[in-house]
């Protein structure tokens, strides 16, 4: 791999710039303002994640993988839970409440279904992966319908996000592949609540972009500051 950490110390993310699952971890690391180093993986065209060296790290051959002081953790959703539990002292992103944690975990599992549909369609349409595209898009639309309806129902009871009236890791887990759905030929036209939710994300402090998820141009965040590409705000 390009640059394997020499030392076990520190926080590392095995990362691919175009991966929504890697992006959700980058986004959460930014929200938590945690120092970390990215280790780029040649997912495409090199398929480095399917090669021996990477498979030793994650036998499933999937990105992202987090390494924290030598502790190796694959799976984007697992990483969100781990980072929240370990580093979010405010407990805002993954509250220590059994019912809320159950609810959040429901959405973490749902995020995998979004990956299996919306992300699959995008891999087909953009990188030429061979898969059943009609089925992926159909399932993608079903998932988006469900998410959009849920956001509408929440809005009626005064909640702007999936679980609470503030974002949790449930929102972060579901966000990237919904925002990238159009790259897989899945239009967001019929999901206005999801589109508003995407825009709310873009106004959060420390929000960062990825290719395909541009900033709200000229928009100010909650603190009245403009964004730049790194999500850093300036007046």
């Amino acid at each position: 791999m390009s640059s394997k950490p020499n030392t076990q110390k520190g926080l590392y993310l095995y990362d691919y710039i175009l991966s929504g699952n890697c992006y959700k971890v980058r986004l959460f690391l930014s929200f938590l303002q945690l120092d970390h180093e990215l280790i780029p993986i040649d997912f495409f065209p090199g398929f480095e994640h399917k090669q021996t060296e990477f498979l030793e790290l994650n036998p499933l051959g999937q990105i992202p993988v987090l390494m924290d002081d030598g502790f190796v953790l694959p799976d984007a959703q697992a990483i969100l839970v781990y980072l929240a539990a370990k580093y979010d002292s405010t407990e805002a992103w993954y509250p220590k409440d059994p019912k809320l944690q159950g609810r959040i975990t429901q959405w973490l599992a749902f995020a995998d279904s979004i990956t299996g549909s919306c992300s699959a369609a995008r891999l087909h349409d953009k990188l030429g992966f061979k898969l059943n595209i009609e089925q992926a898009r159909k399932k993608g639309h079903q998932n988006l319908r469900l998410l959009d309806d849920h956001l509408v129902e929440n809005k009626i009871v005064g909640k702007d996000w999936l679980v609470l009236n503030r974002p949790t890791i449930a929102d972060i887990a579901c966000f990237p592949y919904v925002a990238l759905a159009e790259e897989g030929g899945i239009s967001l036209n019929d999901y206005p609540a999801a589109r508003s939710w995407i825009n709310r994300f873009k106004k959060l402090p420390q929000f960062i972009v990825m290719p395909g998820i541009p900033p709200l141009h000229g928009m100010k965040n909650n603190e009245g500051k403009f964004f730049n590409q790194e999500g850093l705000c300036f007046s």
Binding site: S3, I17, K126, E182, E183, P211, G212, P214
Partner: peptide
């Protein structure tokens, strides 16, 4: 920079364009 670093940079730039192109 490694080949992977360069690929990521170029793919990032290109995928920023795609949303406009399409």
């Amino acid at each position: 920079n490694t080949e992977t670093d360069l690929i990521h940079f170029q793919q990032m730039i290109f995928f920023q364009d795609i949303i406009i192109l399409e």
